[in-house]
Computed example of a mutant assay.
Amino acid sequence: MVMMGIERLVGSLKSKLRSLKLKKPLYDKIEKSDSMRVEIRSRKARKLIEETLKVADSPKSRSVAF
């Protein structure tokens, strides 16, 4: 008798957890402004330049003339 009550309790807890996982987040998605887009592009450009300079400065790399 006690086992049946525990099984029912566990089953209900599992279903509640599943329903909580399926809910959407409570926040609204923020649209990117033009300044945010520019900042993201400049960060990507700086990162690319940094990686390129690191490869160019390493003694193991050979530069290829195009």
Rank of each mutant, 00 (worst) to 15 (best):
D28R: 09
V2S: 15
K21D: 13
L13R: 09
K14L: 11
I30W: 06
D28H: 10
R18K: 13
M4E: 15
R37V: 15
P25S: 00
V10E: 09
S35I: 12
M36N: 05
I49T: 03
S19H: 12
S33V: 04
S12V: 00
K54P: 01
I40G: 02
K23A: 00
D57N: 11
L26N: 10
R43G: 01
M1W: 09
L22A: 15
M3H: 12
F66S: 14
V38P: 01
E50M: 06
I49N: 08
A65H: 06
L53R: 11
S63V: 12
R37W: 05
V10A: 13
K32L: 15
V64C: 03
E51N: 05
L22F: 13
K24N: 14
D28W: 06
A45D: 14
S58G: 02
T52L: 07
K54D: 08
F66M: 12
S12A: 08
Y27S: 15
D28L: 12
E51V: 00
K54E: 15
S19M: 10
K21W: 10
S12M: 07
S42Y: 06
R43H: 05
R41W: 04
S61K: 03
S33N: 08
D28S: 12
A56N: 07
E51K: 07
V2D: 11
S61V: 03
F66T: 13
E50Y: 01
L26A: 10
S19K: 13
S42W: 10
K44C: 01
E39A: 15
D34H: 04
E31A: 12
V64F: 00
V64W: 04
V38T: 13
D34V: 06
K29D: 06
K60D: 11
E50Q: 07
K24E: 14
S58A: 15
S63W: 12
I40W: 00
D34F: 01
K60C: 14
M4K: 10
K29L: 06
K16G: 10
T52I: 08
K29F: 02
S58I: 02
G5I: 01
S63T: 13
F66R: 10
A56C: 07
E7R: 07
T52W: 03
K16Q: 15
I40K: 01
D34T: 06
V2G: 13
K60G: 09
L17P: 01
D57W: 03
R46Y: 15
L9D: 11
S58L: 04
K23T: 01
K23C: 00
D57C: 06
S33C: 03
L26S: 15
E7F: 03
R62E: 07
K24A: 14
L17D: 04
L26W: 09
A56H: 04
M1T: 08
L17W: 04
D57I: 02
L26K: 10
R41E: 12
K14P: 02
E31G: 05
E50L: 04
K24Q: 10
D57Y: 03
R8Y: 09
L17G: 11
L26F: 05
K44V: 00
S12R: 04
V64I: 01
K47M: 00
A65D: 10
A65P: 03
E39K: 15
K14E: 11
S42C: 10
E31W: 04
E51H: 08
S12H: 05
S33K: 01
